[in-house]
Lab assay of single mutants.
Amino acid sequence: MSRESDVEAQQSHGSSACSQPHGSVTQSQGSSSQSQGISSSSTSTMPNSSQSSHSSSGTLSSLETVSTQELYSIPEDQEPEDQEPEEPTPAPWARLWALQDGFANLECVNDNYWFGRDKSCEYCFDEPLLKRTDKYRTYSKKHFRIFREVGPKNSYIAYIEDHSGNGTFVNTELVGKGKRRPLNNNSEIALSLSRNKVFVFFDLTVDDQSVYPKALRDEYIMSKTLGSGACGEVKLAFERKTCKKVAIKIISKRKFAIGSAREADPALNVETEIEILKKLNHPCIIKIKNFFDAEDYYIVLELMEGGELFDKVVGNKRLKEATCKLYFYQMLLAVQYLHENGIIHRDLKPENVLLSSQEEDCLIKITDFGHSKILGETSLMRTLCGTPTYLAPEVLVSVGTAGYNRAVDCWSLGVILFICLSGYPPFSEHRTQVSLKDQITSGKYNFIPEVWAEVSEKALDLVKKLLVVDPKARFTTEEALRHPWLQDEDMKRKFQDLLSEENESTALPQVL
């Protein structure tokens, strides 16, 4: 008996699950189920560990084997000379395990699969056993689809999209007709009724959600790893209520002995410091949205989908001078704002400069500016000194954290500008005749005249004003913003236009 009217009423009120309206889709043409990776026989039982391990490696599972009696060998002398080797079968990115008779397991190899009674669906509900069930008529011709799209860092995100009359449910929550939600590992998919569980979705590319604290899981769906560094790992996640993407940084307390840091400095109150950081608001710094204190720290951040500045300059790639100017102007505005709010970044580098898009002209935002507030000064500097390429001379020669101030950030900005303009770092371990530390503390950077011949004198002058060993003589952010190279009204107008595109209400910060 159909429950279409009941569920449609529920759909009209929406769902609290991570779902959002989605535009129309072009329906895929039908194809045989076997060619799409559906096993030839149905099963109602969950797999054992041996079955799972075989399939996850990209080899055929026991459900897909063919009797050897149906095959015969071709003698080598009868092999056609022009026969080309077969292409290897792509490894599946996800697996659906059937929970009921009449449904088959599915190895997801393609990027898009339609499910329903219509014969054009890649996964067609046409098993005779299924057709005899009382629920068969409640399934729509095109009930739902599972697909994946390219996300940040060229990774993939799996989604389920509801197109049914009676509802598609993920972990008992209604997706909603015309809406989608991301699928995470071990999600249970039910059709027409929330208790009519048909599939379990296994994402073969992500970790299980159960490793994360419950308070975090209640608000966010964790997904793929976006990156990792000395101070922690960053994962893509989704807000459950809105389906908006965020980035979540995970900082290990054990790695940084944060408990010991608190004992050594009783004034170090991470929760208080995070609340201060959350109040920071500038178009060129990453917004801190939320914070969870569990076995590790979880910092929920605004997501930038254009990648890191590092990706644009790695491998001796240089940027156009006009692009360097647009990016560097924004970096200076961001660091100036942090300094005005009493925050020294201490870890400025291309990896911590994020881009809003893949376009050459785009907004940038500074991230990882609050680590000293979370990890403690000593722990952070011990970590950073392991990779000193961007560290100021006074940091390398000081004991502990004494003896330096916000000028350290201006040195790091000078190193970043040098790399963007030239395509190579000013200080490098590859210069074996002088140690990296000695290069930095003496201010002897690697200047290649033929490379810098293409760079304007004004740009080079600003680099020199920032890479000054004496912090008292080094340019401040205010002085850098007043430098002739940055007195470019076309560049500032472009920045204002980019801000307006992102948010019509965002105004250009005042600069002296």
Rank of each mutant, 00 (worst) to 15 (best):
N48S: 11
N166K: 07
F103C: 03
E122W: 15
R95A: 02
C18G: 10
N110T: 06
S44I: 06
T89L: 06
E263T: 14
D126L: 11
R148M: 13
L183G: 02
E76Y: 12
S187L: 03
T68A: 01
W97C: 08
V7I: 14
T89S: 09
F238P: 01
E219K: 05
L236Q: 04
C108R: 04
Q83Y: 03
S52I: 03
S35K: 12
Q209S: 08
I160A: 13
N105K: 10
P213H: 07
S31V: 08
N186F: 06
G227R: 01
S12R: 11
A261F: 06
D118A: 10
N186M: 06
S228K: 14
V25R: 12
P21G: 13
D101W: 13
H54S: 12
S35M: 08
K245I: 14
E107Q: 15
P182Y: 15
S155L: 15
S15K: 05
G14S: 13
V7F: 07
F256V: 07
L204K: 00
C231M: 14
E219W: 01
F202D: 03
V175G: 04
T59H: 09
G232D: 02
M46C: 15
E173F: 13
D77E: 06
Y159L: 15
T172K: 15
I258F: 04
S120Y: 10
S24L: 12
S42Q: 12
K135N: 08
V150H: 00
F115M: 11
L60G: 11
H163K: 08
T45A: 11
N186I: 06
D208G: 02
I160E: 01
S57W: 07
E70C: 07
C231K: 03
V206Q: 13
I221R: 03
L129T: 09
S33R: 06
F115V: 14
L204W: 00
C18N: 13
K119M: 10
E70A: 04
A267P: 11
E87R: 05
E107K: 15
N48H: 10
K235N: 07
A261Q: 01
S28H: 13
K131E: 08
K179F: 06
E4F: 06
S192Y: 03
H143R: 02
S16W: 13
G227S: 15
E188G: 01
S55G: 13
Q11I: 07
H54V: 11
V246W: 15
G116P: 01
S57V: 09
R132M: 10
S44R: 10
R148F: 01
E81V: 09
T68F: 04
Q10T: 03
E79C: 04
T65I: 04
V200L: 09
S50H: 02
S44P: 13
F103M: 05
F202A: 07
K197D: 00
R181G: 15
N110L: 11
